[in-house]
Design a binder for these strands. Structure first.
Lengths: 341, 341
DNA sequence: TTGTAAGCGTTATCAC
DNA sequence: GTGATAACGCTTACAA
């Protein structure tokens, strides 16, 4: 069933039906009613594909996510949810593209096939070939995360560098002199994953500023890795009394390893991090952390993208967020760890 | 840039370019090379929308998820991930539709606009107006979950009724006589959410078969609700020694409440449930649970959908899964709870 | 082996 | 206020 069928049954031209629906041209009350009756009777709805071809707009945005096989972190899920939500509010559909390595058919389909009006890309690397590809394609896009050259694209991002430095300063203020950074996985860092690198930078800087003893450790994004990472840290650094972390997924493991070692948080050991707010709240004890406003970031990204779709000449938007650290239950005055029993 | 431009520059007809690309008709090596050269030079990729309009196939499936604002459970995320993954393997794109209440524009757009070749619907209710809508639309669809009349649609589902009964029997075998069911939220159950109802049924049946004292409680899908739910249970039922649960999201709260009450699992209290495997593994102690194979369910759903898209006359597929209970650390012999100190 | 042309279902321009 | 008709970019008979 198509617009022609409706036109035939209402005894009008196809264009009249189209105008009756869009209201872009006045249609007499009489005919409009007749047309509507037929539409209701047959349950006609215009074909979105044909409309997209004609208009050159699909009313769809692409969302490039990390390959689904790898489990997404809570923060990543927060981004997906908020993007989908914000898009729905703007009557946009979301096409998911799990973009893996280099040779990605899904990504290529979305970008090259003009199936979407614009794209939001998650998990941006410092050097990111997807960004290169998108730039050359001319398709509007917004990154959740930014490359090494942030001025050449639109993005929203979390200021890991500042945040992790704040964590370190907060811990130093409490008297901690020997602090570890639990970073994201070695693979991510090696691949030039922005947050991993920027966390490093902020950590190194703050450690130097406060003249601390700092140690950095990469840790895979899961609970067990968190456990073994902290076991190793405690073992190799007897003077360690605090951890700053950007690795949400490993954090429950961090807790567990400390507890296994007989350390009570925050009495014997402190933790401060960057995490999704609800995750921080739900840990036990609740994590002192900079609460990443995933909702706001996703919504802003969609907003920027909509603007760029409407007018590709719009200057690039940049939104760097550094939420304050919510003091919860995991940081306290430094207290030397005795020799382990 | 379009196929006509390529044709013009290669000095051939548009159809020849099309055939050179699709291989549906032999093209001389000479011309094919010339065409390919132009394509490479201009970076041409066919417009997927035009192709979809012409072919009547979009190579896209719709995935109807619960509204993103509500946080998805681990199991739901597992479904989404596996569907996206399986679809990508079949070179299908996934259009996300966060379908909320009745008046859902996104759902309607996806279903009525012929933007997808088929749909996978999550979180099916016993009576589900989306299923009704899809059936009348004629669009192929598969449910993750089934309605009260499962023969009239294709679905994959978890056999909550059997699984929760197995949990109860397992607990009864260990000597537990007073067992609680921690169900999903009261709203979901009231809305006719299948798993909630079927868990009830299985629980009631098993309790009767073993002549136990059973108590059922609804619990919202979050940690804090798990805590208060268990606090209330312990308070109102001093004889209670075990919990069977289908509420993944609340389970950490169940643990916490028991620990707060000074009960050690599994020494003083037992828990058995139905949950995503990795979640069960990562709880502490690891949860004795029927591990729901979300990966397999999602993949099967996609498989069924692909089959129905290829031939809508294919008989409906039904895949009910009842994984064995993995004995982990949370069930042990019953031991009466003393009067609470 | 290749070209011509019809048509997928819309919207928009032009004419009346 | 309404109708005819030409696109949008592609695929695929049908011809040659």
């Amino acid at each position: 069933m198509n617009i022609g069928e409706i036109a035939r049954r209402s005894g009008v031209a196809r264009s009249t039906v189209s105008y009756a629906l869009s209201g872009k041209r006045p249609v007499s009350e009489e005919t409009r009613r007749r047309i509507q009756a037929v539409i209701d009777e047959l349950g006609y709805r215009p074909n979105a594909v044909a409309k997209a071809l004609k208009e050159g707009r699909t009313h769809t945005i692409g969302l490039v996510i990390p390959p689904a096989s790898r489990r997404l972190t809570d923060m990543q899920l927060g981004f997906v949810a908020s993007v989908v939500d914000a898009a729905a509010r703007a009557d946009l559909d979301v096409l998911l593209s799990p973009s893996g390595g280099e040779h990605d058919r899904s990504f290529e389909r979305v970008v090259a096939g003009r199936r979407v009006d614009g794209v939001i890309v998650m998990e941006i690397r410092l050097e990111d070939e997807r960004v290169t590809r998108l730039r050359q394609s001319g398709l509007p896009f917004v990154g959740i995360g930014r490359t090494r050259h942030p001025e050449e694209m639109s993005w929203v991002d979390i200021d890991y560098e500042t945040l992790i430095a704040k964590c370190v300063h907060h811990l130093a203020d409490l008297g901690h002199r020997h602090i570890a950074l639990v970073n994201r996985s070695a693979e991510l860092v090696a691949a030039g994953y922005g947050p991993g690198h920027r966390a490093q930078t902020g950590f190194t800087r703050a450690v130097a500023e406060r003249d601390l003893h700092g140690v950095e450790m990469c840790c895979a994004d899961d609970i067990n890795s968190g456990v073994s990472c902290v076991e190793q840290l405690l073992d190799e650094h007897p003077g360690l009394t605090a951890i700053a972390t950007v690795n949400e997924a490993a954090t429950p493991g961090v807790y567990r390893a400390l507890s296994n070692a007989g350390l009570v948080v925050p009495r014997d050991f402190s933790i401060a991090g960057v995490a999704a707010g609800h995750l921080a709240e739900n840990l036990h004890p609740p994590l002192t952390a900079a609460d990443v406003p995933a909702d706001e970031l996703g919504a802003r990204a969609v907003e920027m993208l909509i603007r760029r779709i409407a007018d590709p000449a719009t200057p690039h938007g940049h939104f760097l967020v550094a939420p304050p650290i919510s003091l919860r239950g995991t940081t306290g005055p430094a207290r030397p760890r005795g020799p382990r029993a």
